[in-house]
C-alpha cells in the first residue's frame, strides 16, 4: 500500500458517499445515470469475486464489501426507492456498445485464460468506460448539480491517483500491470474535459451549475 493508492481509495469512497448522500438527502436521482451505476455494480461484482477465495488484507476485504454494498444500495435508490425521479429520457446511452467490446477484449487480452482472471479483466475494461453514460447524460441535460460535479470530480480523481500509484510501484517494487494501467489512463482521460470545466468553474461567470457543452 502507498499513499497514492490510499488517497485514490479514499477519493473513490468519498465519491460513492457523495452520490448516496445526494440521492438520499434530495430524495431524487435526477441528473444521475442509472446505466453508469449498473455498470459500476457489474464492475465490482466481476472484480471482487475473489473476496472469499483470495484474502489480501482486512483493509482490502473491508473496502471490497463497502464498494459492493454501496453500488447495490445506489441501484436500489435509483431503480426502486426513488424510481419516480429517475430521468429515463436523458439516460439513453447504448450500454451494449460498452458491454460487448469489453467482453470481447477481456477474452482476447488478459493475463490468464481462467474464468476469474477474465472476469477481473472484464471489470477493469468496463470500469474504464462505465462513466460514459453519466458524462453523456450531463452533456445532454447541459448541466449537472454542483453535488453531482463533486461526485464526478472525486470519482475521476480516484483512478488518476491510481496512475500515480502505478508509477510509484513500478519504481519502488518493479511491479506493473499493463492492463490496469492502460485502462486506468483511458478512464482518466475521459474525465479531462470534465476536470477542465470543474476546475475553471470558479472563474467562469454565473457558473452556478456545471455546464458541459455537448
Amino acid at each position: 500500500m502507498n499513499v497514492f493508492r490510499l488517497a485514490g481509495d479514499i477519493s473513490h469512497l468519498l465519491a460513492i458517499i457523495i452520490l448516496l448522500l445526494k440521492i438520499w438527502t434530495s430524495r431524487s436521482c435526477a441528473g444521475i445515470s442509472g446505466k453508469s451505476q449498473v455498470m459500476f455494480a457489474i464492475t465490482y461484482t466481476a472484480r471482487y469475486l475473489d473476496l472469499f477465495t483470495n484474502f489480501i488484507s482486512l483493509y482490502n476485504s473491508t473496502m471490497k464489501i463497502i464498494f459492493l454494498g454501496a453500488a447495490y444500495a445506489t441501484l436500489y435508490l435509483i431503480y426502486v426507492r426513488f424510481k419516480a425521479t429517475y430521468d429515463h429520457n436523458h439516460d439513453t446511452f447504448r450500454v451494449e456498445f460498452l458491454l460487448i467490446p469489453t467482453v470481447i477484449l477481456s477474452v482476447l487480452i488478459n493475463h490468464d485464460f481462467s474464468p476469474l482472471e477474465i472476469l477481473w479483466t472484464f471489470s477493469i475494461y468496463l470500469e474504464s468506460v462505465a462513466i460514459l453514460p453519466q458524462l453523456f447524460m450531463v452533456s445532454k441535460t447541459g448541466e449537472a448539480e454542483s453535488i453531482t460535479s463533486h461526485y464526478l470530480f472525486a470519482l475521476g480523481s480516484y483512478r488518476a491517483l491510481y496512475i500515480i500509484n502505478w508509477v510509484y510501484r513500478y519504481y519502488a517494487e518493479g511491479f506493473y500491470d499493463l492492463i490496469a494501467i492502460v485502462a486506468g489512463v483511458v478512464q482518466t482521460v475521459l474525465y479531462c474535459d470534465f476536470f477542465y470545466l470543474y476546475i475553471t468553474k470558479g472563474s467562469r461567470a454565473n457558473a452556478t451549475e456545471m455546464s458541459i457543452e455537448a
Partner: peptide
Amino acid sequence: WLPKRKHDEL
C-alpha cells in the same frame, strides 16, 4: 504471455 499475478489492488 502477460505475467500472471495476484491482484492486490481494489
